[in-house]
């Protein structure tokens, strides 16, 4: 099987699931990487090191910022079998890591190429001349196997679902230039980074806080604050404990929607139905009750730990380990214990 793997990056920062997709492609046959942007030599080099058989780049000022239309047009032109395409034959499969960008890009290219997209794939098996994808539907309450009868097959792979190939610095090659289609319909006017970098999808450890992080009556807010300000101030103290533990474990900070809605933390941290679906190895839920809309976002974590004052909180039904107690007491002790035992 011939696979083209789209390496997704944001301002040069590569989405690690791109390499997982590349590893999957190699297990199915030959794998070419394709990279769009401007000044992407370092990414092309990394693609060779991660095992790409060849690398195609569209490197142009008009592609500096990701925009769906020119990226899709460039990809579709590369893949359509026509004389000017540097691809010797059109691929059977195009793989993408699942990100906000690739959902749009794959969607549009599939329209151009008159084929379909299998999204959020957690398994992909060749059966005869068919590729069968496993993907979650109904928020992961049910799994489906599905096929794409168009050609090429487009699929976005779920982060952390496939092994990441090791980089081998001795591997190298020369990237092939690809014709750029700059039919942009949108302008990127500005960008502000999130206050704290969150990459929940790729995180191996996530420590999340819920509404409970503001619930410490013994914390005396500075004088002059009204009730809402005092609540936010207490939530800050609570999330500081959550963040400290996450840092010691090299993990990311998540949140429940109640914490986001109350203004404790930005939306980009939200785990659950209307936030992110995550699959870390370790998920520590602090002051989160475990509503179904939160559970669908994290219940596929390998090990779930819950810290909650209320022994009847539904989160304990999902957890492997639980502590019935006050997070303001347990979290600092836990951070200390990890520091001591893991030496970080």
């Amino acid at each position: 099987m011939k696979t083209l793997v789209y390496i997704d990056h944001f301002k040069g920062e590569i989405q690690p699931a791109s390499w997982e997709a590349l590893g999957l492609a190699k297990s199915l046959g030959t794998a070419s990487a394709v990279i769009f942007g401007s000044g992407v030599d370092a990414i092309a080099k990394a693609a060779f090191e991660h095992g790409a058989d060849d690398v195609f780049v569209a490197d142009d000022a008009t592609l500096t910022d990701y925009r769906a239309e020119p990226y899709a047009a460039t990809l579709s032109a590369l893949v359509s079998a026509h004389a000017s395409s540097p691809l010797s034959a059109s691929p059977d499969l195009i793989l993408f890591p699942t990100t906000a960008r690739t959902r749009e890009l794959a969607a549009m290219s599939a329209v151009d190429l008159n084929t379909g997209v299998l999204t959020d794939v957690s398994g992909l098996e060749a059966e005869g001349d068919q590729l069968i994808a496993t993907r979650p539907i109904y928020e992961g309450k049910v799994l489906e196997k599905s096929v794409c009868t168009g050609k090429p097959i487009l699929a976005t792979v779920r982060p952390r679902a496939f092994p990441k190939p090791e980089a081998d610095a001795s591997k190298s090659g020369t990237a092939t230039k690809v014709e750029v289609k700059s039919d942009a319909l949108t302008n990127v006017e500005g960008y502000s980074a999130s206050e704290s970098a969150v990459n929940l999808g790729d995180a191996g450890v996530i420590v999340s806080g819920g509404r409970g992080v503001s619930n410490n009556p013994s914390l005396q807010a500075p004088v002059g604050m009204d009730d809402k300000q005092a609540e936010l101030w207490r939530a800050q103290q609570g999330f500081a404990l959550v963040t400290e533990l996450a840092q010691v474990l090299g993990g990311a900070v998540g949140a429940s929607r109640a914490a986001v809605d109350a203004g404790y933390i930005p939306y980009s941290h939200q785990v659950g139905q209307t936030g992110k679906v995550v699959t870390p190895d370790l998920y520590i839920a602090c002051g989160i009750s475990g509503a179904i809309q939160h559970l669908v976002g994290m219940r596929n974590a390998k090990v779930i730990v819950a810290i909650n004052k209320d022994a009847d909180a539904p989160i304990f039904k999902q957890a492997r380990y639980g502590v019935v107690g006050d997070l303001f007491q347990i979290l600092p002790a836990l951070t200390e214990a990890f520091k001591k035992k893991v030496g970080r």
Binding site: T115, G116, V142, L143, E144, K145, V147, C148, N300, Q318
Partner: peptide, 16 residues
């Protein structure tokens, strides 16, 4: 349709 479902499964029940 080009994308078609071929099977449905319940996710493995975890020991919780």
């Amino acid at each position: 349709p080009v994308v078609k479902r071929t099977a449905l499964m319940n996710p493995p029940v975890r020991e919780t």
